[in-house]
Write a protein that binds this DNA or RNA. Structure first.
Lengths: 177, 177
DNA sequence: ACATTTTCTGACCGATCGGTCAGGAGTTGA
DNA sequence: TCAACTCCTGACCGATCGGTCAGAAAATGT
């Protein structure tokens, strides 16, 4: 019955496992148990463990690329506020994927799928910093990493004003003028 | 000759390995190769892999406790700036340990050694937020996570004004008055 | 009804993991 | 010289890992 959904259930279970215990820490066995299928079924739907990871990471990576494309058509002044809001929205929409990116940054940066993501984040930093001033770029990185981290905090997840608050913090921290 | 230092060399190599590939990702074999000894030697000096981790995490945890003690003797106004500077200094002094904490947060939080650390960070957040206002606390968490993350960025590590810049970003982001 | 294709599984494999253990090598003290 | 102790190692162990494969089970097409 749930045949077509099996693939999605695997992705959902894998996202939870990866976020909880990291990519290395999660085992195909545990994911299969959570899905309610056999380990071999996972490897029928995906070429391997890293293929599951790649499938999970692809959607937010594509949205980041879309955000970058939107920003590149703006002036520096417009781009900063759009970058702030765009990044906050992106991070709120993909909390679970962010979690596994966060907890396995060293592994992921060596994966080919992330070779494309690095320049995107660099351009996002430039848009937030409105240029190449080192201290402004550092402030932008603090904002990006801090925002991404805080939405993973279970205590913050329930805040109804989360989006507005995050945007406010980012604006203040980046106000280098 | 280097007998008494073997323990410290193990800790240094383990810190590098943990920071690079995470706690789960690092193997005792690889650590032993980096040290130049056998895997059994690691387990002669430490009760197990988790004992190595505990030994690495203890010093920064103790310093965080010391910072908390200093802050508790101050007024809310004094405490905020002292918390900013204290946390920045702490993070700069223990970059490598922060890295492994960062990359293995889910594992570490389940370790008993971290049961003591959680309330300390909560009080640090309260000092930065100067109270319990939700949006101020969220800003404080953004600052803490962002600051800890950015010092791990190899591109930022060389910045000579790193400390001053980080303190400036934190002050701006926390300026909720 | 049958054949075909998709979906799924149990059994198995080689590799690697953390950890144990008996004992070698070197130093120290009497 | 001879124990006693510290430091270290190779060989080995059970468990678990990701992955393979032949074939069962179920859906689909005719």
């Amino acid at each position: 019955m749930a045949r077509l959904n099996t693939r999605d259930e695997i992705l959902a279970a894998a996202a939870r496992q990866f976020a909880n215990v990291g990519y290395k820490g999660a085992s195909l066995h545990d994911i299969a148990v959570e899905v309610g299928c056999s380990k071999a079924t996972l490897l029928y739907h995906f070429a391997g463990k890293d293929a599951i990871l790649a499938a999970l990471v692809e959607p937010p990576a594509r949205e980041l690329a879309a955000l970058d494309e939107r920003l590149s058509a703006m002036s520096a002044g417009q781009a900063r506020d759009a970058a702030i809001e765009g990044f906050v929205d992106l991070v709120l929409a993909y909390r679970r994927e962010i979690a596994l990116i966060y907890h396995d940054l060293p592994h992921l940066f060596h994966q080919p799928a992330f070779a494309d993501v690095k320049p995107l984040t660099d351009r996002l930093v430039a848009a937030l910093a409105r240029g190449t001033d080192p201290s402004a770029q550092l402030a932008a990185k603090v904002v990006l990493a801090g925002t991404a981290a805080v939405v993973l905090d279970p205590e913050c997840a329930t805040d109804p004003d989360l989006r507005a608050t995050l945007i406010g913090v980012a604006r203040r921290a980046l106000n280098t003028s």
